[in-house]
Amino acid sequence: MDVPIRDRSIRLGQFLKLANLIENGSDAKLVTADGAVSVNGEVETRRGRQLVPGDVVALGGLTARVAGEG
């Protein structure tokens, strides 16, 4: 699924919440620390990683792609 963002980039933790891949912001720390999140096919443990349109985030069999606003 494509998830539009307003700015040029978004932090991974914020995107996980925006895309409804996690229930609340504190879950971002847990799932990234556990190595459960991948960005563009590679495990990502930094919840502050900057994502840009085109990046694909996966968690627990669900995927979401960062999309530009328009």
Rank of each mutant, 00 (worst) to 15 (best):
G60F: 03
N24F: 02
E42M: 10
R6V: 01
N24V: 05
S38F: 03
V56C: 13
R46N: 14
A19R: 01
I22V: 13
V3A: 05
I22E: 03
E42R: 15
D2V: 00
P4F: 07
Q50E: 13
D2T: 11
V31H: 10
G68N: 01
D55W: 12
A67N: 07
I22D: 01
S38N: 12
V52G: 08
R47T: 04
P53R: 08
E23C: 08
R47W: 09
A36R: 12
E42W: 06
S38K: 11
R49C: 04
V39C: 11
L12R: 11
G35Q: 04
G70I: 01
N40H: 13
V56L: 10
E23I: 04
A67K: 14
D34P: 01
G60A: 10
G60C: 07
D27A: 15
A58Q: 11
G70P: 02
G54W: 06
T63F: 04
A64Y: 00
V43K: 15
V56W: 06
L30V: 13
V66P: 01
V31E: 01
L30C: 12
R65K: 15
N24S: 15
R6K: 14
N24K: 14
T32K: 07
A36P: 00
T32P: 09
G13P: 00
G54E: 06
G70L: 10
L59H: 13
V43R: 15
D2F: 10
I10Q: 03
T63R: 14
Q14G: 09
R65D: 00
A58V: 04
M1W: 03
T45S: 12
E42L: 15
T63W: 08
L62M: 06
K29G: 15
K29S: 14
R47E: 11
K29I: 00
G68M: 02
Q14E: 09
G25K: 08
N20Q: 12
P4I: 02
G54Q: 05
S38Y: 02
I10F: 12
S9A: 14
L18D: 04
F15Y: 09
G41W: 07
D34E: 15
K29T: 11
E44A: 15
V57R: 01
R46T: 05
Q14L: 10
P53V: 07
L16H: 12
G68Y: 02
E23R: 15
T32E: 03
A58H: 07
L16Q: 07
N20K: 14
A58K: 12
R46P: 01
T32C: 15
L12H: 08
L51G: 03
K17V: 13
G48Q: 04
Q14W: 05
D7P: 03
L16Y: 12
L18G: 06
L21C: 06
G70W: 00
T45A: 12
L12M: 09
R8E: 09
N24D: 14
R49P: 02
D55M: 06
P4Q: 06
I5A: 10
A58L: 00
L18Y: 12
D55I: 00
V52F: 11
S9Y: 12
L59Q: 05
R47I: 05
T45I: 09
G68F: 00
